[in-house]
Structure formats: C-alpha cells, structure tokens
C-alpha cells in the first residue's frame, strides 16, 4: 500500500520534472516587411496592423507632375541596378569637427556641383556635418554590414533630427530599395525631391533612384521618364 503511494509520488516527481513549460517563441516582425501593407514579409509576420490610415498602393491617385511636360519615353538606358555600396561622404567624419556649424545641417547652402555624380553617389555639393553626417555614416556602416533594418532605423533617427534634409530621405530610399521595397523607395525619393530645390546633383540622384524603383515595379515607361529627368537635372 505504502509502496503504491511511493510509486505514485515518484512518478509525479518524474513527470513534474519533465513538464517544463515551453516558453512561447515570439514571432519576429521583420522591419522590412511593412506592417501596414504589402505581403512580401515572412510567413511569421503578424496580421497587417490596422493603423489609422493604410497606405494603399496607387489607389488611383493621379499626382500632377510639376510643370515639366511629359517627356518622350526613352528606352535606351537599361543600366543594371547597382547596389549603392559606394556612397561616400566628403570629407570623412573624423577630419571634420562640427564646431562652427550651429544648426547648419537643415539649410546647407547649395553650391555648384564639382562633377557628374557617379551612379548612386552624390556630388561634393552634398556635404553635411554634425549629427546628420554622424548618423548617415552609422547607417552606411550598418548597411555595409548587411543590417538594413538598423540602417533604416538610424536614418529615421536622422530624419527626426533634420526632417527637411533631402539627403536623409535619399539614403532611406536607397535602403528601402536594398530591402526590396521599390514602391516605398520611389515615394521617399519623391518626398526628397520636394525638398531638394536648388540642388541639381541631388535631384539627379533622386530621379535616378526613382527610375530604378520604377523598373523594380515593372514600369519601364515611368523609369525612362525618370531617367530623362535625371539627365535634365544634371
């Protein structure tokens, strides 16, 4: 009788020893896969968040292109989409202390570009300093190391510090391109264009990016138009 009870006890002990509660693993929400639209995310990604406003891909909205008449589509340039690893800032961070540059990041005066920007790169007129340069440099390192989410996050941090600096949007658009989100890349570049007045080299880079983004979205005609704009701005 006692033995029976003991056996039960032991069995209980063994069972309770085995029955560790498995701690649920949390589904990782991929940063690249937007929470509000798009279905390209991983299968573990949660149901699309019902954020107050959902961005729908081209809900029939016609946006007027400012002033420039529709250019004839040119189907010549089928440049491959180069991953923009070669983006550099002149001069490098260390040699440029930001002492006298109080608040100058938001309103850097445009100057004449020193040369034609290489594809994806920026000309010397796009010099930045202070916090924005520091954060863009960090983002570039993160992007170089394959941490696209970290890069995007650092660029959004830069955007909060200098919301009107189109170069931040340009870089963010580049990261979105690298993440495979061509639609957002185009939108970010378009936002950048509205803030890049008087900066022809940057405008050209933004149009070039729009061209690549449109190619990525299967819109060769739109891409050709954008490429034309990129050339006009040079």
């Amino acid at each position: 009788m006692n033995k029976k009870w003991l056996a039960t006890m032991l069995a209980t002990a063994v069972l309770s020893g085995c029955s560790t509660v498995p701690q649920g693993s949390i589904p990782v929400i991929d940063a690249g896969s937007p929470l509000s639209s798009g279905g390209s995310g991983p299968s573990t990604s949660p149901a699309p968040a019902a954020t107050p406003q959902r961005i729908e891909e081209d809900s029939g909205v016609v946006v007027m292109v400012p002033q420039g008449a529709v250019s004839t589509p040119l189907q010549t340039d089928s440049q491959p989409i180069t991953s923009s690893g070669g983006l550099t800032f002149d001069p490098p961070v260390s040699s440029q202390p930001s002492a006298p540059s109080q608040g100058s990041f938001g309103s850097s005066a445009p100057s004449v570009p020193s040369g034609i920007p290489s594809s994806g790169g920026l000309a010397a007129d796009e010099q930045l300093d202070g916090p924005v340069l520091a954060l863009l440099t960090t983002a570039q390192q993160q992007q170089g190391g394959g941490d696209l989410n970290g890069a995007a996050s650092s660029l959004e941090r830069a955007q909060r510090i200098a919301p009107r600096e189109p170069q931040v949007l340009y870089r963010l658009a580049e990261v979105r391109m690298a993440q495979g989100d061509a639609a957002q890349a185009e939108q970010l570049a378009r936002r950048g264009l509205t803030q890049a007045s008087g900066r022809p080299a940057l405008q050209a880079s933004l149009w070039d990016l729009i061209a690549r983004a449109r190619e990525g979205q299967g819109d060769p005609a739109g891409a050709a138009q954008a490429r034309e704009r990129a050339r006009v701005n040079l």
Partner: peptide
Amino acid sequence: PLGRYPFKIQQRFDPG
C-alpha cells in the same frame, strides 16, 4: 531587435 514600425509615405496630392 524584434520588430520595427517603419516610416512610410505615399504622395496623394500635387504639392502645388
């Protein structure tokens, strides 16, 4: 890092 809510925009109107 687990999740992020990225900045997303869409142009809906002519800036003019």
